[in-house]
Design a protein around this nucleic acid. Structure first.
Lengths: 165, 165
DNA sequence: CTGGAATAGTTTAGGCTTCAAGGAATGAGG
DNA sequence: CCTCATTCCTTGAAGCCTAAACTATTCCAG
């Protein structure tokens, strides 16, 4: 898995391919990092990125989050969260509790075991990211962060408006 | 480099929040764009991103590509390509031919219908990307492209070496 | 020539993901 | 009260994705 679509495009006839090439390079970077992280999560912790992400969301919210809140946080569909949460619950890493005063909603929280487990995973994860980005200087990182901020705003502005927020 | 997660952690003082924030922002940008593209591909062409990507790879290789070559281009597993190619073949967009002189390999090629269809899709796709990134100036795009190039190299250097190429 | 390594693809099991349809609970107006 | 829209979540169908095991073929070294 070494060639990427981006380099292949470099010899296309000139045009407005500029944004496209930027997008493909962005995608390549993200895919490279993401699949390496998936591999290591599996190898070292026998877990997956979605599980890790869900636990990360809960770790930042000690009071718990509803499934819907998790879904918005992770930018995935709500039906998706149902399944991932069910598996984490089966492993004893997450627990559900009824939300007082609303019998529709449930609060998801890390169990003590889940909190311990996530602490180990997130420490390793942070190290992995630093390792993968070690070749980018602090100055470059700052510039990238800022420019990606602009890109994020650009995309959000071009997106269809959300049902409030 | 093959240190287990625990040991690696012991040697690495915390302080990599910086890289982590950059990574999360990169991931957010990519996810936003990618899910919008998926939505539009479905809405306007009743297709998916993997199908589109596979056809894009074939479009750049008029002589055809083996399944393995497609797999490397798309940076996905070979088993995956089997399935996506099968669906595209069932829709008459792609055809398989034996590769002369090697009975293991098969060449995948766009059919005329597939080529027409992809031309429509890729024109729209290019417009969508330009639209989403319209808020990023040409100068910023250039800087982003260059910096992401550095990031890509950094990641590749940190990755376990591949079985040649 | 022959045995073993490498290569090309497929299959299988398990998990992720979306969309769409639907059930249950809530809340607001009449 | 009712009723109806809304919210929260689950389910089901279909597709994407990986790792690992497997088949078939090719290549190579002896």
């Amino acid at each position: 898995m070494s060639v990427d679509a981006e380099t292949a495009l470099a010899h296309e006839p000139p045009g407005h391919k500029d944004e496209l090439r930027l997008w493909l390079r962005m995608l390549t970077c993200t895919t490279l990092i993401e699949s390496e992280i998936r591999t290591r999560l599996r190898r070292d912790f026998d877990t997956t990125l979605p599980r890790f992400d869900l636990m990360a969301a809960l770790d930042r919210a000690p009071a718990g989050l509803s499934l819907g809140e998790v879904s918005r946080h992770m930018m995935v569909s709500n039906g998706n969260v149902t399944g991932v949460a069910a598996r984490l619950e089966a492993e004893g890493l997450v627990e559900r509790r009824a939300r007082p005063g609303d019998r529709r909603a449930q609060l998801l929280r890390l169990t003590p075991k889940g909190r311990r487990e996530f602490a180990r995973q997130s420490a390793a994860h942070e190290g992995w990211i630093a390792e993968l980005l070690a070749g980018v200087t602090a100055v470059e990182r700052g510039a990238l962060f800022r420019l990606l901020g602009h890109a994020k705003i650009s995309v959000r502005n071009a997106l269809p408006p959300e049902p409030s927020a």
